[in-house]
Design a protein around this nucleic acid. Structure first.
Lengths: 334, 334
DNA sequence: CTGAAAGCGCTTACAG
DNA sequence: CTGAAAGCGCTTACAG
C-alpha cells in the first residue's frame, strides 16, 4: 500500500508538502502540485483514514445506534436508518451502524474508544439508559425521539401531541362525535415509548374539549393478535364513526380486516392514521394520515450533529426540535 | 482523555507493560496486573481504536454495502442488514454501513483508505460493478447474492433454481396442470437481478418436464400498479389452478387483491411463494413458501469473511455456497 | 517478569 | 513556496 512517504519520494518533495497539497491548506507551486498529483495517480495512493484520524482527532464517522424491539414494527425503521446514512454521506461522514442489544454499553464502547465524532440515537425512550452515557461522552449526540430529560443533547421528533390534535380537529370538523383510538402496544408504553402517550393524552384532552367521546385501546404488534384485536375493538364500539390508528402494525393490517368485515371507508367508518408516505406505499394504505417524516427527522439530526462536531460550543444551546405535523388527506374521512 | 501513557504513569510501569496487560500476550505479575487494573479503572481508560488500528493494521470493522433500488421492496432488506450486523458484533467486529449511490466508488473509498478489514456486499447483481473493485482490494470480500463471475470472492445465496423446482414439484405432486408465475419486476431483470431468471428459468424447465403449462409474468414494484397487474394476470389465466409468486411487493399485496376478487385460497387457487418467516409475519401472509433465510445468509457471509480476515490464504479457495431451500407448508395449496 | 525504542501513516506548528 | 521534526496513541520485536 502506498503511503504519503512513497508519494513524497516519487514526487521529490517532503511528506508535509504532499499533505498540504492534499488538504490545500497552503499554497503549492503549480509544478510541485503537478508532480504530486502524478505520483498519487501512479501509485494509486489514498490517505489512510485511521492515520489521519489519529493525527487530527477526527474520524469523519458518526455512529448510528438502532435498537430492534420485538414489539416494534420493523418496516418503518429502515427509513430512519436510510435518511441518517444518506445525510451523513452528503456531509462527508461515514456511518458506524450499531445494533448491540445493550445500547448503553455500546454508546460507552463507541465513544470512549473514539471511533466516531458524534452519535445519533434512534428509538429513544422516555428514560433511555443510553442518554446518560452519551451526555458523559466527549462527542456530541443527537436523538430521533423525545426523551423525558432533554439536557445536553439535540433532540428531534415529530410533535405527536400536535399530531393528535390535528387529527381530532379534522374529525371534529367533519362532525364526528365518537372516536376510537388504537395506540401502540402496551409493551411500548411500559418500555417508555413516550410517543404513545404523547399522542394519546393529547387526543383525549382535545376530544374532551370538544365534547367528543373517545375510546382508547392498546394495539398489538404481531399477527394474528393484530387482526383479532381490531375486530374485537370494532365489535365493542359499533357506534363510533371514526378510527384513529397510531400503530404501524395495526394500520398495515387494517385494509384486510376492514374488507373482511365488509366495512367501507369512509362511508361506514372514517380512518385517520400516522405514517410516512413510503410506509403507506409499502402497505398500499389508502388512509388520510399525519406524515411521520422519517427522512426529515434523520436529516435534521445529522445536520445538527455535524454542526456541533465542527463548531463545538458555538453551535448554541441544546435544541429540542419538534417538527410540525402535516395531515395528508387521502379521502378516508367523511 | 486518558491514554495508555497515563495508565502507565499511575501504575508505575511502562507503556508496553500496560499494553501487554491489556492483550494478555505475555505474563504479568499479579501485583503489576492489579496496579494496572486499578489505574485503568481510576482513569476510565479505554484503548483508542484508531491508534490500535494503525499499530496493528486491523480495524476490527467490516463494511456492509447496501443499495436501495427504487424497484426493490425495502422491507426484506432490513433483515439482511440486521443479520450481518448481529453476526459481526458477535465476532467482535463493528459495522460500517455504506449506502452510497455509487457502490463501486464506495468500495474503492472504503477499502483503499483502510477503514475496514473486510467487505460484505448486499443486493449483488449479475455483473455487479462493485465486484471488480472488491477483488482488487487487499481486504477479503463476501457477498449475499450470486453474480455471474464468482472469482475471488466468497458467495452466499439461496439456491433459487432449486427453490423453483421444489415449488413446481410440490404443485405437480398435488395434481396442478396449469400454473402462473409472477417474477420480480422487469427492471430487476434488466439491472441484472439474477435471482429473477434463475428462479423463472428453472421453474419453466421443470414444469415443461412434467408437461405442466406455466405462464410467466413480470410483477410490479409500486402500488397501484401491483394490484392492477395481479388482477389482469388472473383475468388472463382463468384456468390456472396455482399461482407462484416470486416477488415481495406482489405477495405483500396479494391477500387484499384476492379477497377483493372473492378468491379463496386454496379452494379456488393454490398460492406458493418465496419469502422469510419474518417477512410473512409483517405482512400477515398465510402462504406456503420457500424460506428465503436472510438471517442465515447474512451470518454465513460474515463468518466466512472473518475467517478470511483472520487467516488470509489459509481459509481455502473462494466459496460459492447456495443454501438449500426449504418449503414451509402453510396450507395454501391443494 | 519488565522496559526503552521503533514504527504504524498521517498532520501541523515551527523555521527558513 | 517548502522541509525537518514532533506528535497523535497504540503494539511489538528486541534486550535484559
Amino acid at each position: 500500500m502506498a503511503t504519503i512517504e512513497d508519494v513524497a519520494r516519487v514526487a521529490g518533495v517532503s511528506r508535509s508538502t504532499v499533505s498540504y497539497a492534499l488538504s490545500g491548506k497552503r499554497s503549492i507551486s503549480r509544478a510541485t502540485q503537478d508532480r504530486i498529483e502524478a505520483a498519487i495517480a501512479d501509485l494509486g495512493f489514498t490517505v489512510n483514514a485511521g492515520a489521519r484520524a489519529l493525527a487530527t482527532s477526527q474520524t469523519m464517522s458518526i455512529a448510528l445506534l438502532s435498537q430492534f424491539h420485538q414489539d416494534e414494527f420493523a418496516p418503518a425503521m429502515l427509513q430512519y436508518i436510510r435518511s441518517v446514512s444518506d445525510a451523513a454521506r452528503e456531509l462527508g461522514y461515514d456511518v458506524l451502524f450499531v445494533t448491540d442489544t445493550d445500547g448503553a454499553a455500546a454508546v460507552k464502547r463507541i465513544t470512549s474508544s473514539n471511533m466516531v465524532d458524534g452519535v445519533v440515537l434512534l428509538d429513544v425512550t422516555h428514560a433511555d439508559p443510553r442518554l446518560g452515557l452519551l451526555r458523559a461522552a466527549r462527542q456530541p449526540g443527537a436523538t430521533v425521539g423525545l426523551p423525558g430529560d432533554v439536557e445536553g443533547l439535540d433532540i428531534f421528533d415529530l410533535d405527536f401531541a400536535e399530531s393528535a390534535r390535528l387529527i381530532i380537529d379534522h374529525l371534529y370538523g367533519l362532525g364526528h362525535k365518537e372516536v376510537v383510538l388504537i395506540s401502540p402496544p402496551e409493551h411500548v408504553f411500559e418500555r417508555g415509548g413516550a410517543y404513545g402517550w404523547r399522542f394519546r393524552d393529547a387526543a383525549v384532552e382535545r376530544a374532551g374539549g370538544y365534547g367528543m367521546r373517545i375510546h382508547t385501546y392498546y394495539g398489538e404488534s404481531q399477527q394474528p393478535a393484530i387482526g383479532t384485536n381490531i375486530n374485537s375493538i370494532l365489535d365493542a364500539r359499533p357506534t363510533a364513526t371514526a378510527l384513529v390508528v397510531h400503530n404501524d402494525a395495526t394500520i398495515a393490517a387494517l385494509p384486510l380486516v376492514l374488507m373482511a368485515r365488509g366495512v367501507k371507508v369512509p362511508e361506514d367508518l372514517s380512518v385517520v392514521s400516522l405514517y410516512s408516505t413510503d410506509f403507506g406505499r409499502i402497505f398500499s394504505l389508502p388512509y388520510t394520515a399525519v406524515e411521520s417524516s422519517p427522512d426529515v427527522l434523520g436529516r435534521l439530526a445529522v445536520e445538527q450533529l455535524v454542526r456541533r462536531i465542527n463548531d463545538p460550543g458555538h453551535a448554541g444551546p441544546a435544541v429540542v426540535h419538534l417538527i410540525a405535523p402535516e395531515l395528508r388527506d387521502r379521502g378516508s374521512t367523511a
